[in-house]
Nucleic acid binder design. Structure first.
Lengths: 180, 180
DNA sequence: AACGTGATGCCAGTCACTGACACAACGCGG
DNA sequence: CCGCGTTGTGTCAGTGACTGGCATCACGTT
């Protein structure tokens, strides 16, 4: 992180990172499959946290409600770790290669969420659709929160799902959707 | 494409591609920024087609309705070019590096769709949300279509948006969503 | 003390990609 | 017909991400 902030991701060589960590370059690649992966280490934890949160939601809850709860819990960790993850976001935002990797991680997490919904008894088709669209709303809320940190991530999340509902309902009554 | 099919993406060097095309390796990199980009060439066309389709939708149409129309048009091209794009999908599906690039392209196209919705007068917030979730539903439909080509992509698209509406409505009445 | 195991250093090699320079084909005004 | 800029290409050298192979070393076990 130090090096990525100082000189940017592209101008930082694997040898430099290894040197800063006091190890050999080869050793670096034994700990991380590639240079990008360094910034996406906690993925396994986030995955299990998300899946557990979906699994622990009350029985009769609608899919989107279960997702909303799960996202809220993750959001709490997100908001707390902000001083730590803020520079990380900045680096990712300005580096296309890192954004690609981030999207891949998100796709993987979306698949995990779909699996969690299936375990709740939801059909495979609806589980996939709910996971994809729910994740999309989640990401929208996160971006809105970054742009407007005055309101809480929780509030942005609530609004995102409410707006999604309005959009979906308006879609079949053939009325233009209002802006908030 | 020939080489990627024969030996896979990873085991195909840029020098081989250049040789097969009868040019120098350096020349190859003057036409494509990198090895992956070869498979994502028509992106600009798809982007303009999508944005035009969204722009040309009737005035008072709800955001999701406009998107559904645009996706339908793109879907038509998709279904027609299937013999050409089918091997392409297979190569992408088994190559993580290519799936990452594909996700990046999708993110870029989603942003373009959001811009098109904004030009229809939709607020920036709702435009982003509608583009993200609409695109998610689109991708869900495409995947469902690949898994079940018996039904048309059009049918899958219609169902995806109908299911999304059901999911969103059920979310606030706190009822478990039914599976089709 | 012998031994297996896991983490590390070291070395050589492949390959994606880049910058610099030279050269040839082409269209165009003189 | 001649210069001349533009464009596309070949050639070469270099950087840096990653990989496989081998030796070494720390450590706990037998």
């Amino acid at each position: 992180m130090e090096l990525y902030q100082e000189q940017g991701f592209d101008r930082t060589t694997a040898a430099e990172i290894a040197a800063r960590a006091g190890v050999n370059e080869r050793t670096f690649f034994r700990h991380f499959p590639d240079k990008r992966e360094v910034l996406f280490d906690g993925e396994a934890e986030l995955r299990t946290a998300l899946m557990r949160a979906v699994a622990e939601a009350p029985e009769g809850l609608a899919p989107f409600e279960a997702l909303l709860r799960a996202f809220r819990k993750s959001a709490r960790n997100l908001a707390d770790n902000r001083p730590f993850s803020d520079p990380r976001w900045k680096v990712i935002a300005v580096t296309p290669a890192l954004r690609e990797r981030e999207l891949a991680k998100h796709a993987s997490l979306t698949e995990a969420v779909a699996e969690a919904l299936r375990r709740r008894g939801l059909g495979a088709g609806l589980a996939d659709l709910a996971a994809r669209t729910g994740w999309a709303a989640f990401q929208h809320a996160v971006q809105a929160w970054i742009a407007d940190p005055a309101r809480s991530l929780d509030a942005h999340l609530t609004q995102a799902f409410a707006d999604l509902r309005a959009l979906a309902v308006a879609a079949l009554s053939t009325q233009a959707g209002p802006e908030h």
